[in-house]
Amino acid sequence: MNVDVQLWSFVVAGLLVIIGLYAIAFMDNLVKKIIGVMLVGDGVNLVLITEGFKPGGIVPIISEKLFSSGAVGDFANDAAYSLPFALVLTNIVIGASTLAVLLGISIKLYQHYRSLSVAHIFQEDDA
C-alpha cells in the first residue's frame, strides 16, 4: 500500500507541474502567473522528496539515543535517503526569493499601468 503513495505522489508532482505551466501560459493575471511559477517549483520539489522516500523507513535524523543504544547500523538501513531532502531545502528558499522579487516587480508594474493584466501591460511592445 505504501508503494501506492510513492506512485501517486509522483503523479501529483506531474499534475502540479502541468497546472503551473498552464497557469503561466494561459492565465492573464500576474498574481496567477506567479502562483504558476510557484506550482512548477513545488512539483519539482515533490519529485525529489518522493525520490528520497523509503516505504516503511524512518526519518533520517540521528539522535543521542541511537548512539547510546548502538542501533546506528539499523538506522543506516532504515532511514530515508536524505540527500534529495537537502536539495529541496535549498530549492524552497531559492523559489521563495524568486517569488518575492516577482511580486515586488508586479507591484511596481501595477503602480505604472493600474492593472495586473498581462495583455494590458505588454500591449504596446510585441517584439
Binding site: 522528496i49 518522493t50 528520497g52 523507513g57 526519518v59 530515508a80 531532502f85 529541496v88 524552497i92 521563495a96
Partner: peptide, 19 residues
C-alpha cells in the same frame, strides 16, 4: 504535511513556514 509523511521532517518545517 505530505513531506512529513514522506519522512522529510526537516523540509516539512521549512515548507510549513514558507509555504
Amino acid at each position: 504535511l505530505l513531506y512529513q509523511r514522506l519522512l522529510a521532517a526537516d523540509v516539512a518545517i521549512t515548507q510549513a513556514i514558507l509555504g
